[in-house]
Amino acid sequence: MKTVIRTWIVNGKKYTVEFPPMRRLLDVIRETLGLKGTKEGCGEGECGACSILLNHEPVTSCLIAAGQVPDGAEILTIEGLELTHEGQELQRMYVAKGAAQCGFCIPGMLVASYAHVTGDHPDNSDAALREAHAGNICRCTGYAKIIEAVSAAAERLSHEDEDDDT
């Protein structure tokens, strides 16, 4: 069993990890890095529970051979979300609006929310928010409170932007 060594920026900190290159990035995150917040719901890219941000794009970590992630890559997992202002705002709104029920899809869902609100000129219409979360299956909530939470967080964040401009 051959391994490779990679140095990544995970949740803002530099980590050097060694693993067999075809290990799924999900397994390296959970087992090698010990970050158990990222969940496996299907292992086939359908449920989105294993979503992380890889170089600022949301991806399903179950579909990535970890060897494909080069040195210097930036990874943000659920554990890193609270280190950002937008992440904190989203987490606050998820709790306030009752967006989490069983919670198993929530780490991946929050990553999708974060990718949306930190994207270029996010469209915060109901349809756009629903599309931004269409890669994440939730079986508990019917999505209503999740969309409500992201909408509320996006609203607050957009007002802050206006304040910055003035």
């Binding site: 890219g45 989105g48 794009e57 579909l63 990718a115 931004a132 979360h133 890669g135 994440n136």
Partner: peptide, 9 residues
């Protein structure tokens, strides 16, 4: 195609 995550990959 898929959701945002699959589109990114």
């Amino acid at each position: 195609v898929g959701g945002a995550q699959i589109q990114a990959l």
